[in-house]
Design a protein around this nucleic acid. Structure first.
Length: 466
DNA sequence: ATGTGC
């Protein structure tokens, strides 16, 4: 299924603009599966050659009905980061990714942006760094570092509902995507194995490394201070993903040659089990964002003496059962892709977003715009999804090699953006590593998927170091 | 992404 050799190399010659605002890809390698590229011609030109093989992979899981590619697409494990895969009943791990439930939280304040003087920005960063554990391998600095396995189980099953009942909530969470993804009572966490999800036991309430961040921003439209957080399920989600990749391999001996392309059809008991794992990993990520937000709000209060109000909280790495007007009920895998339900979508029924659509949170680099978008009716074209960020354009290795530390430090200093507290900008996460966010967001606006509501500019950024 | 082995 996945080892059929590719017949096409110059794949970009097999694209044609569709009147609905996306680019259609049709090659013998992808057969009849509709593949829609939500890219401008310029962004398409910049897409790496290796992405093609991964798009073909995406079409080859059993029962795939649609593959949508978002404008921030780049190479991932098995399938691209920035892909949306609709299947009938197959569920797959690669199309969710290792950081199960990874996503964004965004909040606003009534504080005028000018109150964030350079001194206050540094003060904010120091206050956050005092409270929040950042970086790869970090353990929570909250009391949740010391919870029992029993309590951990209750948390990843009960999500924010359980957390709020047990520990109380310092803010109104009713504006989040959800508090909890249901987990079956009989599902057990697959402790141990190669993945060792138990790594997550001490990590609830820690940022992590890589592209995870916390940021103080100025909203261009309101000229007030906003805050944004990007984090996921840490070692727990990573461990779950690893163990289910292994299970997929033992499920179908010899058939799954590429570990990254494992999947489960409903005839496997692991099918339901993996859906539960995604729910538990998703709940961990929801909790992680909730706890970090409480800490950031505490720091914000200390420095600006004001409250933060949630705008939205949403994951961009999940598989969920959804309805689609063209493809019916099915599993929607989003890997580095943000859900975009417009007004009237049945998935919003009974929520406060029913008549408006829910906010879409899209971060740019820490020296570029971030965006909050509003989904439009046309979002069905992409399986109700848009990009999840600007998209990497320079590898970490290349960034460390090519970029000059003093020069980058100077650029950020001139822009008045403080990263952490020592003036040294992490090169592999700096502006040059990412595509211009505006260009990427324009691609989804032009395709009629969403419209821009707020533009946010970074003032102070917090990054965990690898 | 993770945090360890290449």
């Amino acid at each position: 299924m996945f080892d059929k050799p590719l017949t096409v190399y110059n794949w970009k010659d097999y694209t044609l603009p569709h009147p609905d605002g996306y680019i259609e890809l049709k090659t013998p390698d992808i057969g009849d599966v509709p593949v829609r590229l939500f890219l401008t011609p310029k962004l398409l030109e910049e897409v790496e050659q290796d992405v093609y093989k991964q798009i073909v992979n995406a079409t080859r899981f059993p029962g795939v009905k649609l593959v949508a590619i978002t404008p921030d697409v780049h190479v991932g494990y098995g399938v691209p980061v920035g892909s949306v895969i609709l299947t009938d009943d197959t569920v797959a791990m690669g199309p969710v990714g290792y950081d199960i439930g990874c996503g964004m939280i965004s909040a606003r304040s009534a504080v005028e942006a000018e109150k964030a003087t350079p001194k206050k920005r540094l003060e904010f960063n120091r206050a956050v760094m005092e409270l929040v554990e950042m970086g790869a391998g970090g353990h929570s600095r909250t009391k949740l570092r010391y919870i029992s396995e029993t309590e951990f189980n209750k948390l990843v099953r009960g999500g924010a509902d359980y957390y709020i009942t047990k520990y109380g909530a310092s803010f109104d969470r009713s504006r989040a995507e959800r508090n909890r993804i249901p987990v079956d009572d009989n599902w057990q966490i697959p402790w141990g194995g190669r993945g060792r999800p138990e790594r997550g036991l001490t990590q609830l309430g820690s940022l992590g490394g890589g592209n995870h961040f916390m940021e103080l921003q100025r909203c261009v439209e309101t000229d007030t201070l906003f805050v944004q957080i990007h984090t996921g399920s840490r070692g727990f989600g990573h461990g779950l993903a690893t163990n289910y990749f292994e299970l997929a391999r033992s499920d179908k001996p010899g058939k799954v040659k590429h570990l990254d392309l494992g999947y489960f059809t409903p005839d496997s008991p692991n099918h339901r089990s993996y859906i539960n794992a995604v729910a538990a990993g998703g709940n961990f990520a929801i909790l992680n964002r909730l706890i970090l937000f409480e800490q950031v709000a505490t720091a914000f209060k200390q420095v600006f003496n004001a409250e933060l109000e949630l705008i939205y909280e949403i994951s961009h790495n999940l598989v969920q059962k959804e309805w689609h007007p063209e493809f019916g009920e099915g599993w929607v895998h989003r890997k580095g892709a943000t859900r975009a339900f417009p007004a009237g979508h049945p998935g919003l029924k009974g929520t406060k977003w029913e008549n408006t659509g829910h906010p879409i949170l899209i971060p740019g680099s820490n020296k570029d715009f971030s965006f909050i978008l509003k989904p439009l009716e046309g979002a069905h074209k992409s399986g109700y999804s848009v990009n999840h960020g600007a998209g990497r354009r320079l590898s970490r290795g290349a960034a460390k090699q090519k970029l000059h530390q003093p020069k980058v430090n100077e650029e950020y200093r001139k822009a008045g953006i403080i990263v952490n507290d020592n003036g040294n900008i992490p090169l592999d996460e700096s502006e040059a590593c990412y595509k211009p966010a505006e260009e990427v967001v324009n691609a989804v606006v032009q395709a009629g998927l969403a419209e821009v509501q707020y533009r946010l500019l970074p003032l102070a950024s917090l990054k965990g170091l690898d």
